[in-house]
Design a protein around this nucleic acid. Structure first.
Ligand SMILES: [Zn+2]
Ligand SMILES: [Zn+2]
Ligand SMILES: [Zn+2]
Ligand SMILES: [Zn+2]
Lengths: 148, 148
DNA sequence: GAGCTAATTGAAAATCATTCTCATTTAACA
DNA sequence: TGTTAAATGAGAATGATTTTCAATTAGCTC
């Protein structure tokens, strides 16, 4: 099936998939598209709905499989909401963090890394080796703050 | 039932519960005890097991209810593991963050806040109002780093 | 200490999210 | 166009979490 949309993210995903010997299926590309156009983080269900809107019937298991794979490939980032819900946001492999609006659940990127200049000395003194970090800000987006 | 243990965390929890007009049940105090003595974050199941070790049969639903309540009261902190698993660590209401060992899942506190000096200007420029933050470091604890 | 009452608990059922299985389909490549 | 391994869909299975409701209990009063 040929697709009638094409965005930077899509070519990027295609490329990575090819590199890894993985197939660029319509389902996978649709996930990229949905995520890219939404401008907010999406739950698995929302992504599923979005993909169904493009392709018609699509298995939920495929969505799960795709998102897990994309996360491994660095294409998407998995987010955790305070309520434990799972969210995914597109990430072009850059080091970005996210702020999450607790009202609308919208996700907004910010490219600076808040822990970049943090001195790990005290942490390392405990013998801990830091390999990764997870930073997420919570608050209200412009719209929701106005509405409140 | 009278309890034969008593720790700072327990009195602290009792106090908060009383303040809020909530009951200090043996189940709730046992959760505090288990969390406090473990020295690492625990999954709901582990907490359940720990409580059963103290009280004998205890309903899992009670554990869930207690942990949710404790989180609202600021007594415990909920953590998210990369695999989506839920963890809880005791938190004396202070502002602490956690580092999580990806091998043993142990959780270690560190009292400094890595985002404390972060300049939110760029974030605020987007109209976002920051209310809270979630920071968690991932890596290896001393023991696991040696074992590897 | 006994009695009262609302809060809490336990057990099981219900719900919800996620993963697995396997027969069928498809993308990639020759 | 044919071949083949990879991927999908549908539904079953699993697992985690929440709900329900009758029975129990903590905290208070006397
Ligand atoms: Zn919002
Ligand atoms: Zn960072
Ligand atoms: Zn460890
Ligand atoms: Zn902090």
């Amino acid at each position: 099936m040929k697709k009638d949309f094409e965005c930077t993210q899509e070519s990027y995903a295609r490329e990575i998939l090819r590199e890894k010997g993985l197939k660029s299926t319509v389902q996978r590309l649709a996930v990229v598209h949905v995520l890219h156009t939404s401008g907010k983080s999406l739950s698995v269900g929302e992504i599923h709905d979005g993909v169904k809107g493009i392709l018609g019937t699509t298995g939920l298991a495929t969505i799960y499989r795709t998102l897990e794979m994309f996360e491994d490939l660095g294409i998407v980032k998995r987010l955790h909401f305070p309520d434990g819900g799972r969210g995914y946001a597109f990430s072009q492999g850059d080091h970005v963090h996210h702020m999450v609006c607790v009202d609308c659940k919208g996700v907004f990127d910010f490219p600076e890394c808040p822990v970049e200049n943090f001195d790990y000395a005290s942490v390392e003194k405990q013998g801990f080796i830091v390999r990764d970090h997870f930073v997420q800000l919570f608050g209200q987006c412009e719209k929701c703050a106005e509405a409140a």
